[in-house]
């Protein structure tokens, strides 16, 4: 079976699954050739194929239901009170998203640079990287409450400014609409 990546079954059910895919036209060329051959040579495959084809035709012939006569009018009455909301992509600027990304990446790089700056590269003769990492005195910068507070304020300010900017954009767009 070439087209059963998500469905494994044996016997009759496996045959039905392959035949349905064949009927839907969602089989690969090699599988199609195999099934066409089976339909010519195997009576049970042929019988099952005809049976499924009938179900398929019936399904295609089923009718759509219709809502009440006033449906369309009701919808139009409701939407007459509404305004189309501005497209999300227009008030969420991709540059802002990228800006936030770069802000956090810069923050991370800054921390790493600071951390590596604190390392004493000349002390000790061990060459293992893991041992060098252990030598980083994280407490020096993580316990520094001034640096932590400064970063936190920066982050909050950044988010606040972003929120402000998006609000202004959205309001402007609504006015336009």
């Amino acid at each position: 079976m070439t087209d059963n990546n998500s469905y494994t079954s044996s016997g009759n059910e496996g045959m039905e699954y392959r035949l349905w895919n064949f009927i839907d036209g969602s089989v690969k060329i090699d599988e199609k050739t195999v099934i066409e051959k089976l339909l010519q040579t195997d009576a049970s495959w042929k019988a099952k194929y005809n049976e499924l084809l009938q179900v398929n035709d019936l399904l295609k012939s089923s009718e759509l239901e219709a809502p009440s006569m006033r449906f369309s009018k009701n919808v139009m009455e409701e939407i007459s009170k509404l305004h189309i909301a501005p497209a999300t992509k227009n008030y969420i600027n991709n540059k802002i998203i990228w800006g936030i990304g770069f802000f956090f990446i810069a923050l991370l790089i800054g921390l790493l640079v600071y951390g590596f700056g604190q390392m004493e590269w000349t002390s000790g003769s061990e060459s293992s990287i893991s041992k060098n990492i252990n030598k980083i005195d994280f407490s020096k910068f993580f316990n520094n409450s001034f640096v932590n507070a400064f970063m936190m304020i920066n982050v909050i300010l950044g988010l606040f400014l972003l929120d402000n900017y998006l609000n202004i954009k959205r309001k402007a767009f609504r006015k336009e609409a």
């Binding site: 809502p67 449906f71 919808v75 409701e78 939407i79 509404l82 189309i84 501005p86 497209a87």
Partner: peptide, 14 residues
């Protein structure tokens, strides 16, 4: 269904 068409209208710009 009515709700669907109203939502679709509201967010048509999307």
């Amino acid at each position: 269904a009515q709700d669907v068409f109203i939502k679709a209208y509201k967010y048509l710009a999307d």
